[in-house]
Design a protein around this nucleic acid. Structure first.
Lengths: 222, 222
DNA sequence: TTATCATTCAATCATTTTATTGAATAAGAT
DNA sequence: ATCTTATTCAATAAAATGATTGAATGATAA
């Protein structure tokens, strides 16, 4: 760490941060953490990693300063150190999207007919929501919803969606959101809703980005 | 690469980009490339790497989409793929600076009494330069100066600075700049100038950031 | 206290990455 | 054509990283 050359020492630190991002599992963990604080157990479960493996990756990121943790009773909770981590992830995403043909291909093939699903911006949603023009739909699992959601949002995990279509006003446009730009939940929700004749769009990005933009988030008391 | 899960495939791409940043030598190469297009030989020389090693790292970054190259005669020239790479590096820098105590320590110990060297912003420099209130000093080596510099800048590599102090107007403030935020040249130049009684400050960041901000750059015909 | 649970640590092995060397290309120069 | 120069490729050895396992730690509850 303590190289003779000061610039090299700094670059070594940058490299350490970058290295923390340079692993699929750690990126998955970060995506989960972007939703909010989580225990090791929950994170391991969500990312389908063994507890020990998840713990190691989390500690790796803690050493690099990407995440922080605190102990509460038997559980250790991890969280992003601050919102600038989201900026870093966004910059990474931009490069990957701009430069890699394969990413483009993956996006096109999986999130198909993306054009017809043009997302709505945060600003527009806020405006139209205040005017009462839209129904906001949160398609994440209940526990994630409880930890924070958009004001006025209805929570309906994807699984329940088809059975609860009657709850929607067919006259109103529905805006669905989920975890973030690479979470498929809201894409699928919009596809289902459109197939049933509803006007539906995705919110650009997801809850972490909404929160990072300084927009209001509703939290249900734990 | 082609994972079952589309999200994992995307994350794998992000990880590949991050991995390209996760090495001191590659960060050094990127710092050089941020100055402009360079041949493999020059890059290897500047970073004190063997040609073969530099070539391999450059190809690694090319695969990740960070840099591009072209052949001209005997030489292969590499360049940053676009300015968004600088954004990514800046985001990385911010995290590293905010979070890592060691970086803080290094910065404080090497770039000492930083407070008294508060940098001048690009906007302020542009304004005051137009008003003829400042002398702009480029302390990089001549060849880098020739490849592009700020309008009106005087080139005086650090080595020559002490011998050429007479060229400066003692009444005018001097603003020094170099390669970027972690290049020590301009810090040292300011220290020398201040020791001799000149009013001197650093430009915030360096030439690559100036260029990326869309501000004018003067190029001398090669 | 002991028992239990969540997490971390430590040791191991398999895999990947890096640096080095020398040979192979590609483009000029002679 | 041959020679030189700039770069890349290929093979190797050394170093780092990742996954797995089981033991160790810290906190709670009985």
């Amino acid at each position: 760490m303590s190289t003779r050359n000061p610039k090299l020492a700094l670059f070594a630190q940058f490299a350490a941060v970058a290295k923390s991002l340079a692993h699929v599992h750690r990126l998955e963990l970060l995506e989960q953490l972007a939703q909010g604080e989580r225990s090791v157990e929950v994170l391991a479960d969500r990312t389908r990693l063994s507890i020990a493996n998840a713990s190691q990756h989390l500690q790796h990121m803690r050493r690099a300063g990407l995440v922080a943790n605190r102990r509460e009773g038997k559980f250790v909770y991890y969280r992003l150190v601050d919102d600038s981590i989201l900026d870093l992830l966004a910059a990474l995403r931009r490069i990957a999207e701009c430069n890699l043909a394969e990413v483009e291909r993956v996006i096109r093939s999986y999130f198909h007919n993306r054009d017809s699903l043009e997302p709505i911006s945060r600003e527009e949603l806020l405006q139209r929501s205040r005017a009462g023009e839209v129904t906001i739909l949160d398609v994440r699992p209940e526990d994630e919803f409880a930890l924070g959601h958009l004001p006025g949002a209805v929570n309906m995990p994807l699984r329940e969606l088809e059975m609860r279509l009657a709850e929607f006003d067919p006259a109103q446009e529905i805006v669905a959101y989920c975890r973030g730009p690479y979470c498929v939940l809201s894409y699928e929700a919009v596809a289902v809703l459109r197939a049933r004749g509803f006007k539906a769009r995705r919110l650009q990005d997801g809850l972490p980005e909404w929160r990072a933009a300084g927009l209001p988030v509703v939290t249900v008391a734990a």
